[in-house]
């Protein structure tokens, strides 16, 4: 018999890589959106598809109006990206293991070449941060020249999403390993964090209490979105501080 006090929530697990986003200093300039698209070969879908809700961004800036006219108030900009959940709803529903949890890096992976395009993961993602390749979008010359060779170029029928710039993680780990040391905090960062002119995005190891990102995350008034669903997200938001 289990007594109630013996039941523990497993919410204490920490991830490995995490992010802190300060909404108060985010200006909504979209530099992170552009940098992400460049770094990760995210395609441009064109006017028509974009207007129909098929634009592909791994990070987007959300903003809402609160209240009725003329008493309207603008909410702070909210960059929304894959929260790299510790217990992700997208993972169990994929029939092909195309979206799996990386035990090594504590990330939610999207294996493009295994994806068959059932789109169940996107339905089940509470944050709605997954993008689907509805077509083979054209990249006129010379756009293909700016492809990042470290990232797969996706084709039609494949789901994709933010990877926390896993190619940069691997590069940094590889470099550190070749020099026989650990990856230092702040040695590298994701494309969005690197591009942010206001330094509103900070990326790093959340399992290392000394890192900048965990010190910021434990400041107290941070919020994890939709935490009540038990998804254990690894992105902490600050606003109104």
């Amino acid at each position: 018999m289990i007594r109630p006090e013996e039941i523990k929530m497993s919410a204490e697990e920490t991830g490995k890589w995490g992010m802190v986003i300060n909404q108060d200093i985010c200006t909504g300039c979209q530099a992170c959106v552009a940098a992400c698209a460049m770094e990760n070969n995210v395609t441009f879908v064109g006017e028509e598809d974009s207007g129909y809700g098929r634009s592909m961004h791994w990070i987007r800036i959300e903003r809402f109006w609160e209240g009725e006219y003329p008493e309207v108030k603008m909410t702070p900009n909210q960059p929304m990206l894959c929260q790299q959940c510790g217990s992700a709803p997208c993972e169990p529903v994929c029939p092909a293991f195309a979206t799996v949890h990386s035990t090594a890096e504590s990330l939610n992976l999207q294996v493009y070449n295994r994806c068959v395009g059932t789109r169940y993961c996107a339905n089940n993602c509470p944050y709605q941060v997954r993008s689907f390749n509805w077509r083979d979008y054209e990249r006129p010359e010379p756009l293909p020249n700016q492809f990042n060779p470290d990232v797969t170029v996706r084709r039609r029928g494949v789901m994709e999403k933010c990877t926390f710039c896993i190619q940069r993680i691997h590069k940094a780990q590889d470099k550190a390993k070749s020099e026989g040391r650990e990856v230092a905090d702040g040695e590298f960062t994701t494309a969005c964090a690197q591009a942010c002119p206001a330094n509103a995005i900070v990326f790093g190891r959340v399992d290392n209490p000394q890192s900048l990102v965990s010190q910021l995350a434990h400041k107290g008034h941070g919020v994890k979105h939709l935490e009540e669903l038990g998804t254990l997200p690894n992105v902490t938001y600050f606003k109104g501080g």
Binding site: L107, V151, T163, Q167, H170
Partner: peptide, 12 residues
């Protein structure tokens, strides 16, 4: 083993 059989080691 975990690192070497992780999907994200080769596919991203």
């Amino acid at each position: 083993l975990i690192k070497l059989t992780d999907c994200g080691t080769c596919h991203y």
